[in-house]
Design a protein around this nucleic acid. Structure first.
Lengths: 228, 228
DNA sequence: GCGATGCTTCGGTTACGATCGAAGTATGAA
DNA sequence: TTCATACTTCGATCGTAACCGAAGCATCGC
């Protein structure tokens, strides 16, 4: 007389309105912080925190700690498909909205994140490096390929030097405006430095935004094309 | 600032353990009565009744009243897929069992239901008629085709006579042992009558079971093959 | 070091809904 | 008709979990 309880567990997780709103907001594929998700759910951060812990324990969410933020995403492809199939079933009734992100366009386009490039351009750069085979995305990590090492040498970056530091060469960093990964690590730092050195871009005094010159813009877009 | 509430509603419906057990039991595709579902859920019939009403209102279940029973099934293909995708997601954890049905083998094989054939043979007959194109299953209803009319004439059933009565020619009737549909209506009655007339089968005195003779059995199985 | 921010944990309140007993309705059988 | 079965509705109880205020960590920026 024993039953299959797990379907009830999953259902109950999704069944709370606040949690459902959070999950729906995450189907956009972008990572959101606990505070943002609290807003989405219409609850306080304390309550959101307990909800998020339950969702994570239930295998629906994954979190990624970054500084003092915690970025939450749907756990995996399967979780996303489950949520979407439920939204599909509920079609004909209520809808849902998104909630973009950032404020200043300049910050959104390109800015500094510790020591590397973030924003639209940062995301674009990593996407392009992966697409060209310069970087392998293995699971959550990033690895420079032999081809990538050669490509970088062509634009004046000697990876050998970077390897000597004990800091990781490539690290993936979650972008707070794009909510997708960009390149961090010593290589990310080196790339941004090279852009600044070449005069393609400069830091602004008061803000974190990076201003690309017209020529720098052209070079950057040529070097890191997006085809998709 | 408005959200998409329905996913939470669906989740909450599935999220209750008793309801989840009922839904899981119904993924077998067979219809179950409220009392049986109460047993499945480990609750009393009163509680089950309210649960079933909610599930029906939520679009997950459909019910079919038959005599003093109410047979519940998953509402449709979409509902079944949703439940199964949730069970798939919850895979690796709890399982579920089935709960067959009937008692006496003779009743299970063939019995009378008002005036037509029920049980394994009744279900088999309808399946075969549909497979051969004699009957079209359109939605919940059944319709005799031209081919079917000719086929029936060959075995001595004149459909013209049956049409003259105001009783529906074909009706689908839910089978309490097989939990699948068999053929009722005036055609169902006529078919059973012809079996009895031919001496293929006879009613038993004390029970509702129908006893097929060895020869009748052979003829019936030849006439209504199952290929799948 | 300091204060500010982002998030979690703790404690206590509150509300919702699952549950069942009892009574009511519908159908079938005798 | 009367009784039995299958199910629903009503009413009341009770447990669980959502919720928030306050306090506790952790991290960042200075």
């Amino acid at each position: 007389m024993k039953e299959g309880p797990d379907i009830a567990q999953i259902g109950a997780l999704i069944g709370d309105p606040a949690r459902a709103n959070m999950l729906a907001a995450l189907t956009g594929g972008r990572a959101l912080t606990a505070t943002e998700l609290a807003g989405v759910g219409g609850i306080t951060v304390q309550t959101a925190s307990t909800h998020l812990a339950k969702l994570e324990a239930g295998g629906l969410l994954a979190q990624r700690k970054q500084g003092r933020h915690r970025y939450f995403t749907l756990a995996d492809e399967a979780a996303a498909r489950l949520i979407e199939s439920m939204m599909g079933f509920a079609a004909g009734r209520g809808h849902l909205r998104h909630q973009p992100g950032p404020k200043e366009p300049a910050l959104r386009k390109a800015r500094i994140c510790y020591d590397h490039l973030a924003g639209d351009y940062g995301v674009r750069m990593l996407d392009s490096l992966i697409a060209s085979g310069a970087i392998d995305a293995v699971g959550d990590g990033l690895a420079l390929t032999e081809k990538g090492e050669n490509d970088l040498k062509c634009i004046g970056i000697d990876v050998g030097d970077l390897r000597s530091s004990r800091r990781p060469l490539c690290r993936s960093c979650l972008d707070w405006s794009e909510r997708r990964a960009h390149l961090a690590g010593s290589l990310g730092k080196a790339l941004l430095s090279s852009f600044l050195d070449k005069g393609w871009a400069r830091r602004t005094a008061e803000s974190r935004s990076i201003m690309f010159s017209p020529e720098g813009d052209r070079q950057f877009l040529r070097l890191f094309p997006v085809d998709a």
